[in-house]
């Protein structure tokens, strides 16, 4: 008998015990060791780069929940990064520095925005759905451009990181890093539980065959809407982390190309696989970093690379390691 592996009292799904869990385990272990490496070499840049990778991994995980499992290809997901970031930045500017206020606000406003966007977009499909989600994201982008008090087009430097009453000190780069790491793990556990729950099966069923779903008696709209809100809230948290990580917010956080980047990370890693978004984010950001050191035009090499993945690697990077999708 194999005992169920538990993290913080939460039993992990059986798939984590399979050999194909070796790659996620290795990647997570390496991510966990980055601060050790940074301390040993005295090179803080690794912490910055991999902290960013962790934060955007959470955003990609949230996008994968709706796009990979739910078939809702939102092309405006970076809006939630921006909303989460601006919630932190605006509250800081108004003198509220407690993370216990800033972060729930980031999550709540993102969830609310997702509720509105979802309610208006989820009755459409295909290219219309993509256009509506994109339009909403661009709307937020232009609104933040007009917020002169909060830096307008240029963005705003946030003077101090979110305070957590001495529990965690985010000014300590290692503590900030490990908080991101812990939230990344929590996001993975959360999504793995949600997609295998009754709710998750409805979401996946709606992606697989909407007509059949209705015929067995389920109106999918409200389930998809709730899923959309969960994803928005999770990405809002990622945005709050990003604002703390860079000490800076600007409309560029949610420009449409950033939404595209998130989609690429998810597809690159493997749509609808639990760990795919993390693999995609690690690969994409490391490649971008490496290429930007040797060429002025990293996109020139990234683009064809993505094309090859799209053509030859239908299940993304994760499929290379024998992981079966969407199960």
């Amino acid at each position: 008998m194999k005992a169920a592996l538990k993290v913080l009292g939460v039993p992990l799904p059986a798939c984590w015990l399979a050999p194909r869990a070796a790659l996620p385990a290795a990647v997570l272990a390496l991510l966990g060791l980055v601060p050790v490496y940074a301390a040993a070499t005295g090179d803080p840049f690794a912490l910055t780069l991999f902290g960013r990778i962790e934060i955007l991994s959470i955003a990609a995980i949230s996008l994968n929940l709706i796009m990979g499992y739910g078939g809702m290809a939102s092309f405006g997901h970076a809006a939630y990064l921006g909303i989460g970031g601006y919630a932190v930045g605006i509250l800081w500017k108004e003198g509220i520095t407690s993370g216990f206020v800033q972060w729930p606000a980031a999550i709540a406003v993102s969830a609310l925005f997702a509720l509105v966007v979802g309610a208006l977009s989820l009755r459409t499909r295909g290219v219309y759905f993509i256009m509506i989600t994109l339009a909403f994201a661009q709307m937020v982008y232009y609104v933040t451009q007009g917020l002169d008090r909060y830096g307008g087009d240029d963005g705003m430097t946030i003077g101090s990181r979110s305070g957590f009453a001495g529990l965690v000190d985010l000014n300590n780069a290692t503590q900030l890093y490990y908080l991101c790491f812990a939230l990344l793990l929590a996001s993975l556990v959360l999504v793995s539980r949600v997609v295998n729950s009754r709710f998750g099966l409805v979401i996946q069923g709606a992606r697989s065959n909407e007509r059949r779903m209705r015929a067995i008696g389920i109106s999918t709209f409200r389930y998809k809407l709730v899923c959309f809100v969960i994803a928005g809230a999770l990405c809002g948290l990622s945005g709050a982390l990003l604002a703390n990580h860079t000490n800076f917010i600007s409309p560029a956080m949610m420009y449409w190309t950033r939404s595209g980047d998130l989609m690429v990370m998810v597809i690159l890693g493997g749509l609808g696989s639990l760990f795919g978004p993390v693999l995609g984010t690690v690969t994409y950001l490391l490649l971008e970093e490496a290429l930007s050191r040797v060429t002025e035009y990293p996109g020139l090499f990234l683009g064809p690379g993505l094309l090859l993945v799209a053509i030859f690697l239908n299940g993304g990077i994760e499929s290379l390691f024998g992981a079966r999708r969407r199960e």
Binding site: P13, R193, R198, G200, L201, V202, I216, Y223
Partner: peptide, 20 residues
């Protein structure tokens, strides 16, 4: 088949327990 059973077993807003 299980999803069809689930569809007639109350709402499906149950998020954390493994439906399988």
């Amino acid at each position: 088949v299980a999803l069809a059973v689930q569809a007639h077993d109350g709402h499906s807003f149950r998020f954390l327990t493994d439906a399988r």
